[in-house]
Structures are given as C-alpha cells and as structure tokens.
Amino acid sequence: MQITLKLCNKTLIVKLIGELDHHEAEPTRMVIERTIAERDAKNLIFDFSDLSFMDSSGIGMIIGRYKLIHSLGGQVALVCTKPQTERLITMSGLKKLMTVYPGVENALRDLKEA
C-alpha cells in the first residue's frame, strides 16, 4: 500500500492507495501517529478515494486514530467514493463519529469552518 501525507494548516491529509487490511494497518498507524506528533496536526482526513480494498482491520485503525485526534480536541473526516468501502463504514457505525465526504476539498472546507 502507498501512503501520501499532506499537511494543510493544522489538518493532516492521509491518502491511502492500495489495500488496507490487517497486514497494512500497523505500518499505516505508525506513520500517522509519528506525523501527528512531529507536525502537531489537529485534524485528520483519510482519503480513501483510491483505496481498492478495506476490511474490518481498517475500521479498527480508523477508530484508533479517531480516539487520539478526539482526545486532542480535533476532528476526523473520511473521503470515500467506493461503494464497498462506504458499506463497511456505514455498517460499523463510523458515521456517528465522523463525516464522510465525496472529496478532500469538501472535508477541508468543513473543518476550516468548525
């Protein structure tokens, strides 16, 4: 899996390309945690628009990062366009904790206004 990180003001945008499963969840978690600490990020956007696969290990990884960001007073947003990923997100109740957007720009705009 390929991870691209971008910081936009205080929001860290994490773009994941490939397959997010249990094997990939741990290295992904470590990169995100390190970057949040080093760059003092407040909010987090997961960009899943080029993610070809995700299972419940991905859900566990998202919830883990939500807990951290939430404890720092920030917000987490998801960008998702794939029906399969969206189904998993809905099923696991993530939408009660964070908003799903069709594009990164939409998510950034909302986080700025908050």
Binding site: S56, G60, S92
Partner: peptide
C-alpha cells in the same frame, strides 16, 4: 488493545 474493531464476523455474515 490490538485495534480490532470486533466487526469481522458481522462483515462475514452481511
């Protein structure tokens, strides 16, 4: 503590 979501069997069932 392993960041499991507990949704695996629910996913399989669904």
């Amino acid at each position: 503590d392993d960041e499991r979501s507990g949704m695996g069997f629910t996913v399989m069932e669904t």
